[in-house]
Structure formats: structure tokens, C-alpha cells
Write a protein that binds this DNA or RNA. Sequence first.
DNA 1: ACCCCCATGTAAACGGTTACATGATTTC
DNA 2: GAAATCATGTAACCGTTTACATGGGGGT
Lengths: 195, 195
Amino acid sequence: MRESTTRYVLLGVLAMNEAMTGFEIRAYLDASVQFFWRESFGQIYPELKRLSAEGLIKRASNRGRTRDAQPWRITPAGRMALRAWLDLPAQEQAVRDETLLKMFFSRHASPGQARSLIASRRERAVARLAALEEAEKLVLGEPEDPDLLSSFLVLDRGLGVAKGVLDWCERAEALCDAWEKGGRDALVRQWRRGR
Amino acid sequence: MRESTTRYVLLGVLAMNEAMTGFEIRAYLDASVQFFWRESFGQIYPELKRLSAEGLIKRASNRGRTRDAQPWRITPAGRMALRAWLDLPAQEQAVRDETLLKMFFSRHASPGQARSLIASRRERAVARLAALEEAEKLVLGEPEDPDLLSSFLVLDRGLGVAKGVLDWCERAEALCDAWEKGGRDALVRQWRRGR
DNA sequence: ACCCCCATGTAAACGGTTACATGATTTC
DNA sequence: GAAATCATGTAACCGTTTACATGGGGGT
């Protein structure tokens, strides 16, 4: 299996924010890239130790924090390692979509299954859209943000995905309607109309 | 971690096609749902044995196949298990997008990084779009397909995703241009124009 | 004779989540 | 005084990929 991406996530966050604890890194991730990347503590803490052993990060003073806090700073070597990774082409990761899978086998499920699958997918997309629009306001409100371009790039994709899901929900329901009311012919007509 | 989805994928494929070997199941998956679900042999073969031990599938005769071929058929119990799973709400899976991640840290990479990230993403999306349009022709050409609705539902989503990526590539490049030529103000203007 | 496809299987290694244990500090 | 938050860490477990081993059958 390929090398873990976790280390570069940690280096990236530490490159954007001077001195952070594992706990803060996790919180930062959850507040920014949460919709396309997450890390658990079980990954974060051991990886921080490894990075430290390799000299890619080092301890910072825990002034103004609780006693147990262990803030880390990225080193020049860490910045180099991060940059080297960033410049490598991104690997395509295998997407797994359980909703689509259940859709695909839908003929072998109960009658209402496809509809409720669509409904819950829509619910999630609506919630995500709202969260992203909230995030957009935050980004727009921040003056002098050096990472504004990146934020927009990433936000745009998130909004696009959410809207794409919503569009699909509409079309999927129309296809179900057509199939139920008019069989194959109506379904094919609806398909051609939708695309 | 949650219960493995693999078993239900196998049951689903065996529900759609009477009698298949592990090898054929894999080929079928690659030809149909490959763009949102994949399984490796290391998962398939052990899981088939487990399913067989639980009475959810059983051996079929290997007429017309090579000596070693071990085709399986789904049992009534298997169909029930499949249906029970299908009727459960789909779990949202954690999406991980390395391209977006590298975009997010883009300020710490080399100058051309964001552009080449976009370019290679576009390339992949173009290839996928072509593959899906090919698949569409196949589906449309098939008369009397009992799974036509499911095929459309899934195809539609795939096409939507690919087109969404392509749209994002356009907008992302426009945002990069605006940032390079006009700084923050131009970037924000471009953002408002794009949405 | 060689190569590719069909076909099955196993073992190791890996990445990741979950659950658990611990305890300080702040807020109600 | 209870609850929530900050904070670190470990161990078990699980799912998955990868690499490897094996061999028949068909085509060139």
C-alpha cells in the first residue's frame, strides 16, 4: 500500500499555522477540510511522534496552554518534505459510494427503497450545502487571508458536489416516476429529456 | 469498524446473474460499477467461502467452464439477507480527496502546482466521461433489461460527477488567473461572478 | 515454445477507526 | 459538584491491498 497521507496533512496544517497541538490540528481539520478529509487521534498522535523523530517538526513552548499541551512547529526540513509531496501528482483514490451500490441492486429490495435512498441523500446534501455557505461567509469576511485562493478552490468544489447531488436527486425521482407510470418506454424518454 | 460491505456486493451480483465464479464477479464489477465500487480477489474468494458456510450461496455445476472454475448461485436465504441490507439506510462514507488536499496546501508548493493539479484532474474526468458515454450506449442498446432503471440512476450520477469536475476545472483556472493578475480584489470579483 | 487469459487461493503488511484509560481546567 | 472541554495516548480490531504461488487452456 502507498505511503500514508496523514503525515503530509499534519505538515500542511503546521505550515499554515505556527505551533499547534495534536488536538488543535484535529479541530482545525474539522473546521476547514472536514468535508473531504478527516483524521482520527489514533492516527495523529503516533504520526506526530514519527515526524518529530525524523526532524520534520519540533516541540514549541506551551505558553498560554494547559499543562499537558504539546504544541509542534514545522521545521525547514518539514517544509521541504511537504513541498516535495505537494508537487507530486495526486493519486486517484478509489471512491466507494454505498448509496449508489444499493441503487444498483435496487430491483432486489423493497418497493420504496430507491425513493428513501434518494430522500436521505438529499437531506445530507442540503445540510452540507448550508454548512458550506456558512463557511463561504467566513472566508469572505476574513481580510488579508494568504490562503484565500485555496479556500475558494476547495469551497467551489464542495459547493459543486453538493449541488450535483441535489440535481441528481431531482432527476433520479423523475426517472423513478417515469418507470412506475410508463414502463421502459417512458423511462427511456425521461432519460433523453434529462440529459 | 462496521460490517463488511463486500458480502452484499457479492450477493447483489449473484442476484443479478445466475451462477458466477469469483473471477467473473470481479469482471462484472469492473464492467459495471467500477467507477464507484471495486473489490479485490483477496476479498472476494474468502468472502465467497464464508457466504457458502452460512448458506447464503451454494455451488453450481461448472458446465462449459474450465476445470478449476467454481461458480456460485445465491440461495433464498441469500436473497433475504441481501434485501435486509438493501433496505437499511446507506452509510455515509468518509470521502478522501487528495487533489483537494494538495490544493488546500497549494500556497506551500511550487508555482505551477495548482495548475497541473487541475490539468490532471481534467484529464481523468474527460476519460471517465467518455467511458460513461460508452456505457450509456450499451445500456440503451440492450432491449428488455430488467435493471434499466438502476442502470440509469447510477449512470446519471456518474455523468453528473464527471461533468461537475470539468466545470470545477474551468472555474478553478479562472480563479487562478484572477488571483495572479489582479490579487485579492480580482479574485473575490471572479468568485462572485462564478457563483 | 511462449505468452496471455482464466482461475483460485493465501499471507503479510498496512491504514484506519474505535474503544478505552487518564487527568487537568473551565463553566454552569 | 457536575458536566463539558482540553489534552494525550495505546491497543485491539477490522477491512483492504499487494504480492506471491500455482496451474490449465488456447492462440501464435
